[in-house]
Design a protein around this nucleic acid. Sequence first.
DNA 1: TTTTGAGTTGTTCGA
DNA 2: GTCGAACAACTCAAA
Length: 483
Amino acid sequence: MNGLTLVWLRNDLRLSDNPALHSACSGRDPVVAVYVIETDRAQRHAGAAAAWWLGKSLCSLSEQLRRIGVSLLVEEGPAGRVVPETAKRLGASSVVWNRRYEPGQREVDSAVKAALKARDIAATSFPGNVLAEPWTVKTGGGTPFKVFSAFARAVREKEIDAPLPAPRASKNRAASNIEPTPLADDTSAVWTQKIDAFWDIGEAAARKRLTHFLDEIVADYPKGRDIPGVDGTSMLSPHLRFGEISARQIWHAATAITHEKPAIASAIDKFLGEIIWRDFNNHLLYHNEDISTVPMRPVFDHVRWRKDDDALHAWQRGETGIPIVDAGMRQLWETGWMHNRVRMLVASFLVKNLMIDWRVGEEWFWDTLVDADDANNPGNWQWVAGCGMDAAPYFRIFNPVLQGQKFDTEGDYVRQWVPEIAALPERWIHRPWEAPRDVLSSAGVSLGKTYPRPLVDLKASQARAKEVLSGRDNHGVSAARPS
DNA sequence: TTTTGAGTTGTTCGA
DNA sequence: GTCGAACAACTCAAA
């Protein structure tokens, strides 16, 4: 009996620059791919929005794989059991995959490797979707970096692997009698109707977006990326999340443009800095224990976060009465995505103005964002809260009115997502509670009826946060310190 | 070992 | 309107 190579796909739903798939297709054995919907208790399951994306991405991938003679099987269960069983059932002689960096997932992968080897099945892993794997980037002293800028310098000095080509179709690759799992592109659920219209999913769409971004958008990136009412960011995050495109492909495509158009080199460099941030968060994920629940720096141990379900629900629904916060939360709900600057604002508002635990916000984002992943969602929440590595200092508290006026000057973004106040003039669009009565009534706004009054007083809640987060308030360690 | 310069995205206040 | 300082020290990374 001939051997067969099984490719275990995870967050690498693409054909090009897929090291494991490339290796499998370079051999002479037939190739089959498997995606396992992992149900291990210890694993964090994809949130609702991400699960929706995943379903569509798998449909797209299955079709692409079929064209090169590879059947995609979709299984469900604990990977530690399902992968070895599937390999055995198919008579595989070898299983390959691309690495992931979350500590719990690495344990699963090690267990799978051991189980395969115990059955005399070869198991080989390849680099995951990062520019440089976490253990290859170290300080001069051999320790992991803890600040971003030094980490970024080290990554920029490295040679980033060139992307691999997609495997070509080949006659002998298909394994006989192994049909792909039928996948339904189900668009019937009501909640997905809007989000569905918003996205193109899959490898081809990711490549198309990258090209469009590099051709039309990146030149203005340093400024444009901060304006939520403008299409000024790459919007590649969900494609990266599922590996429909690789960080290496982005790196090399962007670097090539730098050579063609030196005038926009610094804009491209700014963008690549964000791609390095993504690597930095994976680096932190690898080196820290469970960053979704454990603060990387224990700076807030003395803080008692507020438990306030009413406030939390208002935040989740986009009914805080702070226009730019509400706009962001509604954009999130309707599209599964939120502009980067607004993410910082809504997160800062939850943690610092409402004094609600960052983990509560992280969970909401996890469930509603199409791009939430194990590294960047918790890493960025910890950054905003101030307990992450190289994080914002406790006194950096965004004022959503000033931020709105600065980055959504004419109020386009607020008007798009909070239509009930769209008729307010520019001057009041970010602070309707201060608008004169006649302005409100002629805009058809009745505070407390058609649009909420602010959930908290910005000035007072900001002062409270400074007090509490600086450790100078009356509860916790500082109060009991002897003189 | 010690020293030194630096550290993603802000706001407010007073001169 | 613009500018620098304060907000808090502390830790990191490299020399």
